[in-house]
């Protein structure tokens, strides 16, 4: 069953055409990675899925239901089911780690605070931050902040998790701790869309890889194929260049 269906979606930032005729289906439990040069529309695609970027045309279905992006209750509904982790973590600076994780489930989803607190403690332990509960974001390293952001997204109990270049702002030694967390999630069967520059990681965890360039999807293929025998020349150029740099 397709959990997400995107049919010829177009989106703009002001006048800039950032997403051009995007067609993409994501099945339940799949891990789809988006790769491509910067500015190719990968992050915009994720932002569109949580309604931070409103598509101008095209259709998007979530669990077979058509989403009307101009309807507040539809927007609320997709944001209930899809959680996003941002490149710059975007933790709330005025709240400590525990509060960052708990605020939306208690205040927005109106769940039982005690139960949320327990889940938050469990998740923060899972990402290895059980001893940083009372710390504020500016007291944490980038890797720690990113793991808080992941715990925060998971505490919303989403069906789908979007990860937007979550390792690109991190020092190399911090990348591993974050990727280990994602591997753990992948093994638990969470549907994920991942924008990443870590090609080895992409190869390892993805069910399928999407190559984007200049706002369009150029190729969707298995990770093995996309890195070894891509069907498009632009994919080959990009992958070749990236692998040479490594």
């Amino acid at each position: 069953m397709h959990q997400i269906e995107i049919k010829s979606a177009n989106a703009f930032y002001e006048k800039l055409h950032v997403l051009k005729n995007i067609d993409l289906n994501v099945d339940k439990g799949e891990i789809v990675s988006l790769i491509g040069p910067s500015g190719s529309g990968k992050s915009s695609l994720l932002k569109m899925l949580v309604g931070l970027l409103i598509p101008k045309s095209g259709k998007i279905f979530l669990n077979k239901t058509l989403i009307n992006f101009h309807n507040q209750s539809d927007l609320r509904n997709i944001r209930e089911q899809i959680a996003i982790v941002f490149q710059q973590y975007n933790l709330f600076q005025n709240m400590n780690v525990l509060k960052n994780v708990c605020i939306a489930p208690t205040k927005i989803q109106k769940r039982n605070p005690k139960e949320v607190n327990e889940q938050a403690l469990y998740l923060l332990e899972k990402v290895g931050l059980q001893d940083k509960l009372k710390s504020y974001p500016d007291e944490l390293s980038g890797g720690q902040q990113q793991r808080v952001a992941i715990a925060r997204a998971l505490c919303l109990n989403p069906q789908i998790l979007l990860l937007d270049e979550i390792t690109s702002a991190l020092d190399p030694e911090l990348v591993k701790e974050v990727l280990d967390t994602i591997r753990l999630l992948a093994s638990e069967g969470m549907t994920m869309l991942i924008v990443s520059h870590e090609m080895n990681f992409v190869k390892e965890v993805s069910s399928r890889v999407v190559f984007m360039d200049d706002g369009s999807i150029i190729e969707i293929n298995s990770p093995k194929n996309i890195f070894e025998k891509p069907s498009e020349k632009r994919t080959l150029d990009f992958v070749g260049k990236i692998l040479k740099e490594k």
Binding site: K47, G51, R76, R79, N90, F92, I108
Partner: peptide
């Protein structure tokens, strides 16, 4: 703006 984005994505 990142603070607004994070809040919006969490349905604030």
């Amino acid at each position: 703006q990142t603070q607004w984005d994070a809040a919006a994505a969490m349905n604030f």
